[in-house]
Write a protein that binds this DNA or RNA. Sequence first.
DNA 1: ACAATAACCGAAAAAAGATTCGGTATGTGT
DNA 2: ACACATACCGAATCTTTTTTCGGTTATTGT
Lengths: 120, 120
Amino acid sequence: MYEKKMEEELDCGIRVAFKIFGGKWKLCIIDAINRGIARPVDIYKSIPNATMRGIEIQLAELLFFGAVERCAEEVYPKKSEYKLTSLGESILPVLTKIDNWGAVHSEFVRQRQRELQDSE
Amino acid sequence: MYEKKMEEELDCGIRVAFKIFGGKWKLCIIDAINRGIARPVDIYKSIPNATMRGIEIQLAELLFFGAVERCAEEVYPKKSEYKLTSLGESILPVLTKIDNWGAVHSEFVRQRQRELQDSE
DNA sequence: ACAATAACCGAAAAAAGATTCGGTATGTGT
DNA sequence: ACACATACCGAATCTTTTTTCGGTTATTGT
């Protein structure tokens, strides 16, 4: 994992939360796993524009902080599968709130974004 | 504002939401304003480790996307003041959820973070 | 056995994001 | 008038994050 040069403050809940699920694809990954998509390739395919390496890295971080775990059971066919831990599940209500807010305001935000691009 | 080189997808609520309040200090700023801290310097002073320029930039973005507005009323002494718009206020319940999650899990996260540093 | 797919990983490069620094303009207190 | 604080802004310079690329190892389908 990347070694920071500037001191990292985890002094408020916001910073702690973003440390865990603030990454570019983290909430999308958690959402995908929650919807039953367990394997890295499938998670990757379920998220438009994501890169495989990107998913791998973020998955590794979620694993490190215990939001996700690798399934140990050797099923047939033998595959790498991930599922949410209780910590990961505790993120779901927050994820829902964030996603809903974004969905409700997406048109407004996209419109504002377009105005920005047109003025350049 | 920064011009992106890679195509930016605002295809899910999560991405839209992070576009608006995903910045390093944005939720802290919204929280501060909500607590009645209206002036840039005061917001700056209320957030440990923030830089004045950082606050200015993020405030400008929040302003651009209409989460915050500058008070037009000319009070004495004349000062620059910001307050939440209805869009900004709609973020508050989400902010609370995020902050609470982080507060609840901060010890665990900090512990894991320490283990990471010790192993280096 | 062989080709294809999956799950990784390291390192370089690119992109995005934040900070530092130095500036202007304006308002305020004495 | 003067010193000082505030609100900005642009540009250079970091820092951090993400992507790209090129691997290795192992598993699956034929």
